[in-house]
Amino acid sequence: MIKGTQMKPLTQEPGADTIAMSRRKTMPVWSSWFAMIMAIFLSFSAPTAAQAQVLLHPSPGTPMARDFELPDLDGNKMKLSDFKGNVVVVNFWATWCPPCRAEIPSMQRAWDILKKHNVTLLAIHVGGNEDKIWSFLTDFNVDFPVLLDARSKVSRRWPMMGLPTTFIVDPQGKIALRAIGGREWDDPALIKTILALAKKDQ
């Protein structure tokens, strides 16, 4: 388990984050409409930075991660087992889930660090509608692999109940750690823990 100080607690405002970031860009009208709905939909309050919290917890039973094969947005298929021997961060999300949207920018920043250390990040979008996903990812300049679980077949087999949920799979293919709910993924303590899993195997 790791501790950090930047965690977004339950009463975070993902909608507000999204809108603030969105307004800095030239966005199509439909995005403002969507952001407005999301803002009304969920209005968490600001994080308490002073509160040290555990950000990642051991996954109960440390089960083997179920392999999957899913297409990316270009239709190219990827398997989890393709990355055996690496630490893999597997994030389940959806464009219409406010905390999922809120954590995407920090996930991209984390990816900029993690990819230099042979850590893989796979973001699995639960449900279809590639067009909405494309435009959302473009807004945030996301360049980590995004896979489509259109019928939720993979997400229903993994040990998760809600979105977002993120798992850290160790080089042996076991689910070592998990996070239920959104996080600031570029939190230094969180990055350190993920990298420690990779180093443990060397």
Binding site: L10, V54, H57, G127, S155, M161, G162, L163, G181
Partner: peptide, 16 residues
């Protein structure tokens, strides 16, 4: 997935 989970265990900092 839009509905709140029926059952869930939460460690500190976890939420749905």
């Amino acid at each position: 997935w839009a509905l709140f989970p029926t059952t869930q265990n939460y460690q500190s900092s976890d939420y749905n």
